[in-house]
Design a protein around this nucleic acid. Sequence first.
RNA 1: GCUCCCAUCGUCUAGAGGCCUAGGACACAGCCCUCUCAAGGCUGCGACGAGGGUUCGAAUCCCUCUGGGAGCGCCA
Length: 471
Amino acid sequence: MSIRTRFAPSPTGMLHIGGVRTALFSWLYARRHGGVFILRVEDTDRERSTEEATRVILDGMQWLGLTADEGPYFQSQRMDRYREVIERFLSEGLAYRCYCTKEELEAMRNAQLAAKQKPRYDGTCRQRSAPRPGVDPVVRFKNPLDGVVVVEDAIHGRIAFANAELDDLIIARSDGSPTYNFCVVVDDLDMRVTHVIRGDDHLNNTPRQINMLQALGATPPVYAHVPMILGADGAKLSKRHGAVSVLQYREEGYLPEALLNYLVRLGWSHGDQEIFTLEEMIQKFDIADVNKSASAFNPEKLLWLNQQHIMRATPEYLAGQLKPHLEALGVEVTDLARLAAVAKAQQERAKTLKEMARNSVFFFAEVTEYEEKAAKKNLTTESAAALGAVREKLAALETWAAPAIHEAISQVAAELGTGLGKVAQPVRVAVSGGSISPPIDVTLEILGRDTVLERLTRAMDWIARATPNKG
RNA sequence: GCUCCCAUCGUCUAGAGGCCUAGGACACAGCCCUCUCAAGGCUGCGACGAGGGUUCGAAUCCCUCUGGGAGCGCCA
């Protein structure tokens, strides 16, 4: 039988990296085994589900390339099916209507807590034969009263729960709507899910779900409860440290494959390997190699990996990724070949696309002012001579290419009896406006002769104006 | 409180009884390379939570403790 995995996020909160990693593991596992990956949106709580959160799930999965082979299914569109199964539970005596009021339940709960007991429903309505006027009943599943449920977890191994610890959970609310644990069981069964890979915060739900499955005469799927991701401070992931929408990472200039690479290494490893292409992940991922313990999110390492992936990417691909970030800075890019040249020149000097864009603006827009510190140090009367000499040599160059440009600048340095830095750095400030750029020859080549000559002239003018009496 | 889970450098991890003087990566510090910024190279710093067993031998197996986490909703 072919493997079928699913990712079942709830649109009651933003899809964050914790969810993404679970999705990744499920996706990887399905891909690795030539199986099917299903996306299912768990939106039974219509009150708290938002359209925006649903959008983030869909857009986020698409951005990351975690494409679903089936779905997205929406639980909100399967209500008839749930009602049908609830009826079946009722008619087969697997469930019963409970007329206890919320107040009564609350009182029961408080009493149990006060007696230092685990709060749970006492099963009062199991015996009830007649409806109670004025109360809309909920439906509860009749959990076995004794015995143990064994979860054979692919990550944790065998875990046993005593049925005596479990109570009769509500499967339908008083308005008739089905609840989470029930919907999961019905869906996983209907969708023929073979491997349930999810966060280990669901571990405690598993015995109930297995009981329901068994009541329906079904065989439980393989469960794999992956450890949680903690914030950078080791505390639970929250808005403060990283529980932001995945799309935030796109905005900040992360490559999808870098984020995936970072996430796959959280709780999973393959020897000492740190950098994985998507294909390698698919090839090497296995649930058996997933850790049991929670791991903390480390933004620095993500940044490093992003840089590593940027360095390994092709300039053309990078250009496409970089474009929106330049546009966000108000730079229109029409020449994609030129953009690729820029990306190539920049790819080992940026940790994010956003940073790369920021440092690349001067390739596309006029230099309107010089960074103060850089100008003060490099655009001086002394360097004006170097700039002039460079300008002259460059203007006379036969071929406009990096090697020739490099040669010209070296010559100027030699003629002036100074180091290359004394010449290259003023030129850098003149053409880029600041002190940071790719190697000067490459930078000038991409910029083009006309632009370079113009910017050199402009810098010399600027020097003359800035030091009027020295002349 | 009860149930369940977890435990190697600050962080991510390797480690399935001898290969461990515990390896790699991020971060940090120093050095090298160098036209800036990076990248890269080298070096350093730095961990098996504690106590008991089992064994000729334990980071690895067992127990207890401690610490952390999750669940106990007409949320998912």
